[in-house]
Amino acid sequence: MIQALVFYMFAAIAVAGGVMVISARNPVHSVLFLILVFFNAAGLFLLLGAEFLAMVLVVVYVGAVAVLFLFVVMMLDINFLRFREGFLQYLPTGALVGLVLLVELALVFGTWTFAPDAASVSAAPAPDVAAVSNTEALGRLIYTDYFYLFQAAGMVLLVAMVGAILLTLRSRPGVRKQDIARQLARRKEDTLEVRKVPSGGGI
């Protein structure tokens, strides 16, 4: 009972937060609402008994990603208001379509059934939750059954990294960067020249 209450609370706040993310006027607020959504999602994970995922969500998404977002949004002076032009114009149609879809999905979920052997099939690959810790269970799956997916995800991240570097990194001339190797490799002879200056003669 309490579980159900908590679930609906987290879920409702998450959805409301999601709506706010896209409707808030101030982009900083949007990001803050996003963080709220993440927290509630983490709460949902906790309810499912997936405490590892919950913590990772908080640490990675809230701690790193969202904060980075915040920095970017604050640093870039973008007039988000201009983006919203024409928003109202499409609101009625958009709302109508959204409503239709929502009603239909509600209908579907209202009569939801499962395949006869769904429960047994879905339980099969997971280790016994009671026996091992959450982290260990994940680890077992990721490095065994889901090894392929794990590696594939790694490749996706590699592409993301390459792409980010490719699209943003440019070597501009005249930028002074610290190159430790070069600093260390410098020797006295290269930089220092000792000259005898005759007194009174100038250089």
């Binding site: 499409y90 149609t93 958009g94 379509v97 959204g98 239709v100 879809l101 239909e104 999905l105």
Partner: peptide, 12 residues
Amino acid sequence: FAMIIGVAAFVT
């Protein structure tokens, strides 16, 4: 929007 309308239409 076109994509969403498309999906909505199919579902309907």
